[in-house]
C-alpha cells in the first residue's frame, strides 16, 4: 500500500535484479583503489533473501527495518493487523541471533508489565527483580496506541535512555536494543494515539502493505510459515551485529556536500507553507545516520544524495507537523514534492 507506492523511493530499491548485475561484490572492484572499508553486507543481503521466504513480497519493509535497526533506531510500523508485522520482527531477531521480546499493548497494561518488577521472595527474604520483556535485543510492541499514555511514556523513555529505573534502581538495557512498535491506523476507538513529540523518537515509520497477488497466492498455497520462523538458523551473532553497527558509524564517509544537501532539506521542512514545524535536530541526525546505514547496504562507504532521498518518505513525515488544512493530504507526497525541489550536489 503506502510503502510500496512511495515513488521517491527510486528504482534502486525496487529493481533488485538490476543491482545484482551492477553491484560489485567486495574484493572484486574493477575500478580504482580499494576502499579502506571492506563492505561486509552480503550477510545482510542473505538475511533479506532468506526472510523473503517467510514474508513474500515484503522486501522493502524488511530492508527498511534493517536500515532502521543498523542505524541504532527504533521502528514504528503503521498498518492493519494481519499483514506480517510480527513475523517481520521475529524474523529479524532470529536471523540476527538476537533475543526477542513481545509486548501486547492493552489499555490495562502497566509500566511494570514492560519494565519488569521486584517481587518478594519468601525463601530468600528479599525482593527479587524480575526483568520485563523490554530486556531483550528486539522488542516488538504490538498496537502501541492501545496502551495508556503512562505506559507509552515508560516505554518511550526506555527507548530514549536505553535504561529503566524501577524502585529507585537503574537497570541498563542490552547494548543492542531496538523497539519495533506497531499501531493500527484505522481503529481509533479506545486508543491513545502517540503524540507527535513521541513520534520523533522513532527513527522511521513504515507501512507493510498488502502482498502482491502472486505472493498472496503463494501464502495461501503453503499456509503460514510462522512456526518455521522460530527454527531458522541465525545468520549473524551479536558480536557481528555490533561490528557492523560500528562500521556504519565510523567508516561510512559523509561529505560536506551531503551535509549541505541534508541541511537544505531540513531548511525546506522548516520553511514552507505546509508545515507548522519542521525537522528537529534529532530528525536531522536521523537523516544522516539512516543515510549512512543505507549507503552501507548499498555496498558503499560514502553517502550519496539518493541515500537520503529514498529514505525521506520514512524518516520525515512523522516528524513534521502539518497545518490543519493539509492534514488530509498524503503527507509523503508533500514531503516528496519538497525534496524534489532541492538540487542535488551532483
Amino acid at each position: 500500500m503506502v510503502a510500496a507506492g512511495f515513488p521517491a523511493c527510486p528504482s534502486v530499491l525496487a529493481d533488485r535484479s538490476l543491482r545484482k548485475h551492477l553491484f560489485v561484490k567486495p574484493g572484486q572492484r574493477k575500478y580504482g583503489k580499494m576502499e579502506t572499508m571492506e563492505i561486509n553486507n552480503h550477510k545482510i543481503d542473505f538475511i533479506i533473501k532468506s526472510l523473503s521466504n517467510y514474508l513474500q513480497g515484503k522486501d522493502i519493509p524488511l530492508r527498511l527495518s534493517l536500515v532502521s535497526f543498523f542505524s541504532r533506531g527504533h521502528l514504528l510500523i503503521e498498518d492493519l493487523p494481519g499483514l506480517g508485522k510480527t513475523t517481520l520482527a521475529i524474523g529479524i531477531a532470529r536471523s540476527l541471533g538476537l533475543t526477542f521480546g513481545r509486548i501486547q499493548c492493552t489499555s490495562d497494561l502497566l509500566p511494570t508489565d514492560i519494565t519488569g518488577l521486584s517481587i518478594y521472595n519468601k525463601s530468600a527474604g528479599e525482593f527479587e527483580f524480575h526483568p520485563g520483556p523490554i530486556f531483550n535485543n528486539i522488542v516488538l510492541c504490538d498496537e502501541i496506541n492501545r496502551a495508556t499514555p503512562k505506559t507509552q511514556s515508560a516505554l518511550l523513555e526506555a527507548m530514549g535512555e536505553k535504561q529503566v529505573t524501577i524502585e529507585g534502581k537503574t537497570y541498563k538495557l542490552p547494548r543492542l536494543f531496538s523497539v519495533i512498535a506497531t499501531q493500527n491506523p484505522v481503529e481509533q476507538f479506545g486508543t491513545f494515539p502517540l503524540p507527535e513529540s513521541q513520534l520523533d523518537r522513532f527513527m522511521m515509520k513504515i507501512g507493510i502493505g498488502y502482498p502482491s497477488r502472486d505472493a498472496e497466492k503463494e501464502i495461501l498455497k503453503l499456509g503460514s510459515k510462522r512456526e518455521e520462523l522460530y527454527t531458522i538458523e541465525p545468520v549473524m551473532n551479536k558480536e557481528e551485529v555490533a561490528r557492523i553497527h560500528a562500521d556504519i558509524e565510523k567508516n561510512v564517509y559523509v561529505s560536506d556536500k551531503i551535509l549541505d544537501y541534508a541541511l537544505a532539506i531540513i531548511e525546506a521542512t522548516r520553511n514552507n507553507e505546509y508545515f507548522t514545524a519542521g525537522l528537529s535536530t534529532r530528525g536531522a541526525l536521523t537523516l544522516i545516520s539512516t543515510a549512512k546505514a543505507n549507503a552501507y547496504f548499498h555496498s558503499r562507504d560514502f553517502v550519496i544524495p539518493e541515500d537520503i532521498k529514498e529514505l525521506s518518505g520514512y524518516t520525515i513525515p512523522h516528524r513534521v507537523l502539518f497545518k490543519e488544512e493539509y492534514e488530509a493530504l498524503d503527507k509523503k507526497e508533500i514531503v516528496k514534492s519538497l525534496i524534489e525541489a532541492i538540487p542535488t550536489p551532483a
Binding site: K30, Y31, G32, Y253, S255, D256, K257, F302, V303, A346
Partner: peptide, 17 residues
C-alpha cells in the same frame, strides 16, 4: 549499465571529497 559504471566511480571520488 555503462552510465552506472561511470556514476559509481565518479561518486566514489566526489562524495568522499
Amino acid at each position: 549499465q555503462s552510465s552506472y559504471a561511470f556514476v559509481r566511480e565518479f561518486e566514489r571520488l566526489y562524495f568522499k571529497d
